[in-house]
Amino acid sequence: MKVVVDLKLCEGNQRCMEAAPEVFDVREDDKAHLLMERPPESLREKVKLAMRMCPRQAITLED
């Protein structure tokens, strides 16, 4: 699976980082940075939670 963050939408709300800290890191620039673009299957549920939790709905998943 491939994770994409729409940086135009992302406002650094940090929900993704709480849901899947292995994948997302919100830095000083208030944007979510991907720690891995293609997370292993084992993280799918966490990434999906991050997608749901994102207030701006900035995360998409490409299979």
């Binding site: 406002e11 650094g12 709300n13 940090q14 919100v26 000083e28 208030d30």
Partner: peptide, 8 residues
Amino acid sequence: SRRFTPRA
């Protein structure tokens, strides 16, 4: 918007 992030 950057004035309203959790960090700010």
